[in-house]
């Protein structure tokens, strides 16, 4: 098992935020000229991913969804292999068969990524049941959005996890958007956590753009799941500052709302905090940014040089 960045070194968290943003920007840039396929980016949501993932242990399993780059990179995935997967290349984590939407990395504990909205919720109790019945210590962290919370699978999943005492940490990244529909148009309640409480599950809501707040809240929630072997729901409030899928002109987005969230950019918030606390100098910041940019440049070069899978592989791995 790899070594995971579970230490809460603030500079390390900050560097992860930078890495995710640089990775997503490289994809956005590459998709404008056709070098890289468009994806569902996690721009604006980096702190939600970094804070939550760093609160987990190496034993824990993660289920995620189509907007997964933040979770994967924070867990230690190699950006070159991720990009190779996005580009359909042989060196991708899934041999190029997934593309960006369903990347799983078993060796990192990122299992059963699905892009069916709510799919991860339907699978999480079973993964947790397997952990429990085989006496494994790790809990299951299931990442989903406010859109998935409107699927029936959310409600079925919470009910069963509560009923069977399954160690699932439900992490709802409420990014305010369900594809092209604002959550206000789709949800009968203001918060997803309101629904969780209805199943008798402990819930908490946290500012998802403050990486330190997310880290602390997730640590507390994960500890509660570990200690009680019962589910907990954490709702992380954030904002998808780019479109649903690249390219997207976001003509449907309320400009004032977007501006308000951009003013609370998670990376800028973290940087200001670190500089204010004397933990980061402007020089060190520039060095970090340069290091991350170089890493992404290397990743793009690696992925671009990776060959496509051979046609003979078309029907491999369909059956065990």
């Amino acid at each position: 098992m790899n070594e995971f960045p579970t230490a809460a070194d603030p500079l390390r968290l900050y560097e992860q935020l930078l890495l995710i943003r640089a990775y997503e920007n490289a994809i956005v840039q590459g998709s404008t000229d056709g070098r890289i396929p468009g994806t569902c980016t996690s721009v604006g949501q980096e702190a939600a991913a970094v804070g939550a993932i760093n609160a987990l242990t190496a034993d824990d399993l993660i289920l995620t969804n189509h907007r997964s780059a933040g979770h994967l990179l924070a867990r230690g995935a190699d950006p070159g292999r991720l990009l190779a997967e996005v580009m359909g290349r042989r060196d991708g984590y899934c041999k190029g068969r997934s593309g960006s939407l369903h990347i799983s990395v078993k060796e990192l504990g990122v299992v059963l990524t699905t892009t069916i909205v709510g799919g991860e919720l339907s699978l999480a109790p079973g993964v947790a049941l397997a952990q429990t019945m085989q006496g494994r210590p790790g809990i299951v962290a299931c990442f989903f959005g406010d859109g998935a919370a409107c699927e029936g699978s959310f409600h079925e999943s919470l009910n069963l996890a509560a009923l069977w005492n399954l160690p699932v940490l439900y992490i709802c990244e409420n990014n305010q958007w369900q594809a092209f529909v604002h959550r206000r148009e789709a949800m009968s309640r203001e918060h997803v956590s309101d629904w969780g409480a209805g199943y008798g599950i402990p819930v908490q809501t946290v500012d998802g753009n403050d990486v330190f707040a997310v880290l602390e809240a997730t640590r507390n929630a994960a500890t509660q799941v570990r200690d009680t072997r019962r589910p907990v729901l954490l709702e992380v409030l954030t904002y998808r500052t780019r479109g649903h899928f690249e390219p997207d002109d976001q003509g449907y987005v309320d400009k004032a709302e977007l501006a308000a969230w951009l003013a609370r950019d998670p990376i800028a918030l973290c940087r200001d905090r670190l500089i204010g606390a004397g933990q980061l100098s402007l020089t060190a910041d520039a060095e970090l940014i340069a290091r991350v940019d170089a890493r992404i440049a290397t990743a793009v070069a690696f992925a671009s040089a990776s060959p496509f899978p051979s046609i003979e592989e078309l029907t491999l791995d369909v059956y065990a």
Binding site: G119, L121, P125, L129, A130, Q134, E156, N159, L160
Partner: peptide, 15 residues
């Protein structure tokens, strides 16, 4: 849905 999903998750988890 959740019965089948739980079977899928449990199977991937080793059961």
């Amino acid at each position: 849905g959740i019965i089948a999903g739980t079977a899928v998750g449990a199977a991937a988890g080793g059961l």
